[in-house]
Simulated assay, not measured.
Amino acid sequence: ETIVQGWLYKKGSGNDIWGRRWWKPRWVTFVLAVYPGQPVPMPLIISHHAPGVPFPAHVMELNESTVIMAIDRTTQTAAKDSDGEDIEEWNRHCFQIVNSGTNESRIFTAPLQERNEWAFVINKELYSMEERLKKARAKEEIGEYTQGRKEERKAKRLGMDVLLNEMKEEKMNEMNQQREARRPMSPARRRSIGLPPRVSPPR
C-alpha cells in the first residue's frame, strides 16, 4: 500500500565506490508492506532513480527503533535577493530517518511544506505501526495462554483417565483374587501343598 511518493533529494552516504556525499535526486515511495517475520504490515522507504524503474536504488525498513527528525540546516550563503533578504538555500529543510537498532540513517531534503508533510506522515505511520504490533502481540499472548490452558486441561483429563484405569485394574485384580479363593482346589494342587484329599459330605 502506497502512503506517499514524490521527488526528494537524498544526501549521499559516502558508501559508494567514489565516496560521494552530494545530494542526489530520488523518486521516493513510502509504503506499507507485508513480509515474512512480521505479524503486521511494516513501513518501508523505497528509493528509485526515477519513476517506473523496476529495481530500487535502496530500501529502508522502518520499525520500532526508527526515529524521524525534521532538520533545518544552517544557511551557508551570503547571497541576497533584490530586497536585500538572505536567499534561502534550496536544501535547507531536511528530515532524517535513523534506525537506532542498525545505525542506518538517511537524510532527505524538500521544500518546507513538503518536508513537513513527509515527516508528519512517516511519524503518524510509525505510531500506527506500534499500535498494530501491540495488538498483534497481545493477541499472540492470549492465543498462547489459551493453548496452554487447553493443554493443561487435556493433561488433567489424561491424568484422571490414568487414575480411573488404575482403579479399575486394581478392582479387577481384587475380584479375580476373590474368585480364585472361592474356586475348589484340585486334588493335585491339594497334594502339592500337603493337604489331605477333599472328602465329600455323606448324603
Rank of each mutant, 00 (worst) to 15 (best):
E1P: 15
E1L: 12
V4K: 05
G6H: 02
W7M: 14
L8H: 02
L8A: 01
Y9T: 08
K10E: 10
S13R: 04
G14A: 01
I17E: 10
I17W: 15
W18K: 11
W18Y: 13
W18T: 07
G19L: 01
R20I: 05
W22Y: 14
W23G: 04
W23A: 02
K24L: 12
K24Y: 06
K24P: 06
R26L: 09
R26K: 05
W27Y: 13
V28S: 03
V28E: 02
F30G: 00
F30H: 01
V31T: 06
L32S: 10
L32G: 01
L32N: 04
V34A: 07
V34P: 01
P36C: 13
G37N: 00
P39Y: 08
V40L: 04
P41F: 13
M42V: 10
P43Q: 04
L44M: 13
I45A: 07
I46P: 06
I46Y: 05
S47C: 15
S47E: 09
H48D: 02
H49K: 07
H49S: 12
A50V: 09
A50N: 10
P51R: 10
P51Y: 01
G52S: 10
A57N: 14
V59M: 05
V59Q: 07
E61P: 00
E61A: 10
N63K: 07
E64N: 09
V67L: 12
I68E: 04
I68R: 14
I68D: 05
I68M: 11
I68P: 12
M69D: 14
A70Y: 03
A70I: 10
T74K: 14
T75G: 14
A78F: 11
A79S: 05
A79T: 08
A79D: 00
D81F: 00
S82Y: 02
S82R: 00
D83Q: 13
E85P: 00
I87K: 12
F95W: 04
Q96G: 11
I97M: 09
I97K: 08
N99Y: 08
S100N: 09
S100R: 13
E104R: 15
S105A: 01
S105E: 11
F108V: 05
T109F: 11
T109M: 03
L112K: 12
N116C: 10
A119F: 03
F120N: 05
K124F: 08
L126F: 08
Y127E: 12
M129Q: 04
E131Q: 06
L133M: 09
L133R: 05
L133P: 00
K135P: 08
A136L: 03
K139H: 10
E140M: 09
G143C: 02
Y145K: 15
T146I: 14
G148E: 08
G148S: 14
E152L: 10
K156D: 03
D161M: 11
V162S: 15
V162F: 11
L163N: 14
N165C: 06
N165Y: 01
N165Q: 09
M167D: 00
E169C: 09
E169M: 06
E169Q: 11
E170F: 04
K171L: 07
M172T: 06
M172R: 15
E174F: 04
Q177S: 15
E180T: 06
R182A: 12
P184M: 03
P184F: 15
P184I: 04
S186E: 09
R189A: 13
R190W: 02
R191Y: 06
R191E: 07
S192Q: 08
S192L: 11
I193V: 13
P196F: 03
P197C: 09
R198Q: 03
S200E: 07
S200H: 09
P202T: 07
P202L: 03
P202M: 02
